[in-house]
Simulated assay, not measured.
Amino acid sequence: MVERVKATEAALDLIRLLQDKHGPVMFHQSGGCCDGSSPMCFPEGEFLIGDQDVLLGEIGGSNFYMHKSQFDYWSHTQLIIDVVDGRGGMFSLEGVEGKRFLTRSRPFSAEETEALQEQKI
């Protein structure tokens, strides 16, 4: 199965830290506005998911969503969630940790694209 989203070890470590402090968490890929385009981490259920949000998968046991309009644009890439030093979005849980989540991406290969079409997401 081809993963649409995955996380680096550093991101998984930070997710575990946030889960220890806040309980279950969830992610939504921000599409701009106040916090730019970055993965936003919230306590599970704090960010309301709508019928225009697409569940890409999970990282560290946490669901990762993206708005359909962004998904249509990024559907040819795998999102790789990483962590860098610095302050991120003011609404995202990791902000006080001196770290921020960062989305990297890579295009899917032809074989992966074909497999994704069979997966229907």
Rank of each mutant, 00 (worst) to 15 (best):
G57K: 04
R106A: 11
Y65C: 06
C33F: 11
S105W: 11
G23A: 07
R104G: 02
D72L: 15
S37M: 11
S105R: 07
Y65S: 09
K21W: 05
G89L: 05
D82K: 01
I49L: 12
W74I: 13
P24N: 11
S62D: 04
V54T: 12
Q78T: 10
S92Q: 07
P43T: 12
L18Q: 01
E112Y: 04
R106V: 15
V96F: 00
R16E: 12
M26P: 02
M66L: 14
Q119R: 09
L48Q: 13
D13P: 00
C34W: 11
D20T: 13
R106D: 08
V2Y: 03
T77W: 06
V5S: 06
M90Y: 09
M40D: 00
V5T: 14
S37K: 11
I59N: 07
F101K: 12
E94H: 01
I80E: 04
V84S: 08
I121E: 02
P43S: 05
F91C: 05
S37N: 07
F42C: 05
P107K: 13
Y65Q: 03
G50Q: 12
Q78Y: 08
R4W: 04
I49S: 10
W74G: 03
D53K: 02
G36Q: 06
Q119P: 01
D35V: 13
F91A: 07
E94G: 01
L93N: 08
K120D: 14
Q29V: 10
E3V: 07
